[in-house]
Simulated scan of single mutants.
Amino acid sequence: MVDDLRKGLEGVLVAESELSSIDGDEGRLIYRGYAIEDLARGANYEEVLYLLWHGHLPDEDELEAFTASLDDEQAVSEDVLATMERLADAEERPMAALRTAVSMFSATEPETDADPADLEATLRMGRRITAKIPTALAAFERYRIGEEPVDPHPDLGLAANFLYMLTGEEPDDVAAETFDQALILHADHGLNASTFTSMVIGSTMADIYSAVTGGIGALSGPLHGGANQDVMEVLFEIDESDLDHREWIEQAIEEGRRIPGFGHRVYNVKDPRARILQERSEELAENGDDRWYTYTTTIEQYLTEEKGLPEKGIAPNVDFYSGSVYYQLGIPIDMYTPIFAMSRAGGWIAHVLEYQDDNRLIRPRARYTGSENEELVPLEER
């Protein structure tokens, strides 16, 4: 029996994976050997999904067939739409609505009775989940603003289609490409809390709907998802303040406030995903409102040059710039974490498939610290 206690399983190896690798000291992230910068700038989200699920980047024919298979699965049932409407009317939280939607997807799953060990069937189910999540999320948001859902566009990819279903208007090339990059950047990131949760559920040979639903539940916690929303709320506070944005950040630090979007459990330097989103934020600012980009770069500059946080291993993470990017795309801030889930579902599915291919039930132990040899007193004498 191993006696070492590692709270949070920090530093504990529990599996081997070919999916993604993080070098926290160098600020490097790779998916199956490909640098995240190359994938974000040279591939689309569908190609990255194919890479994660099939082990190689698709050729043109493979991508065309794969994209068509996703397109065919985007529609959700009338029951799902009706439930999204009821949840919107009840002012349910978006992550809770998404959790419910994914659970409901299984009601129309044609392969419900598939053998849990049939990984090809699991992959097909995962593809259906991935295709339907944007449709359900967009419908939920449309109902919240008193509008009817917009059907998926047959000629748009997953990223552009989500923006189209959200707003009812086809996004321009910059918006579509930016959001596609954001989905790529969030698709996988090692054994984070939600991915590990999905793997634990998958290790029981539960169906992929259960695994993805569990991942959503884990991601909904504020210690995992939600930091980009927190960043945006800080930017709103700066925007509404009477202070200059430079003065605001100086005062906030003097008051001991923690700035969200800085620091990461793995990265000791600037998150490579933050660098890419910073570029997109700047590009969006050039074509519209530049306040949010100005605020974020000022904060980073101050915390870097005046406080030296990166030298202490505290640098901007992906959330620091994703919040302002999403806001510039017109996405409501409480939809940021569901969008994270929409992207990361691809990674959850990939990890479940990889782990189940050589499965062993995940069953850690806890050190018992309670009392022993208690005497049971009869109920009438207690």
Rank of each mutant, 00 (worst) to 15 (best):
M95F: 10
D230Y: 09
E148K: 08
A139H: 02
E279T: 12
S106T: 10
L379S: 06
L119F: 13
A159F: 14
F105R: 13
V2L: 14
R32G: 06
M104K: 05
E62N: 09
H54R: 15
G157W: 14
D113N: 15
N373E: 12
I339L: 13
N287Y: 10
I129V: 14
D357P: 05
T122C: 08
M165F: 06
V14G: 08
Q181R: 15
R128S: 12
T178R: 06
P316Y: 15
L309K: 01
R6V: 12
P171W: 07
T297D: 05
V318W: 04
G24K: 01
I362C: 10
L183I: 03
D357A: 15
D38T: 12
A117S: 13
A193D: 02
R275P: 01
G214W: 06
E170S: 07
P110M: 14
P149M: 04
W53M: 07
S203V: 14
A315W: 11
I30P: 00
L5K: 15
G225I: 14
E380I: 15
T369F: 14
S106Q: 14
G313R: 12
S281D: 11
L376M: 11
I249M: 03
D172K: 04
E375N: 07
Y302T: 07
T130D: 01
D289H: 06
T178W: 02
N359K: 12
P116E: 11
T135W: 11
L243T: 03
V325Y: 01
D115C: 01
D151E: 15
L235T: 09
G214S: 06
E254H: 07
P154H: 11
E147T: 10
R142N: 06
V318H: 02
E60H: 05
A366T: 13
A138Q: 00
T197E: 11
T204F: 03
V212T: 05
N268C: 02
G226K: 00
D239K: 15
E141S: 04
T337V: 04
D79G: 09
A68H: 10
A131W: 11
F262C: 04
K132V: 11
A366C: 11
E255L: 13
E255V: 09
A121H: 09
G157K: 15
Y50P: 02
V352Q: 11
T337S: 08
I22A: 08
V377Y: 03
E170A: 13
A315C: 10
D155L: 15
R273M: 01
Q328L: 14
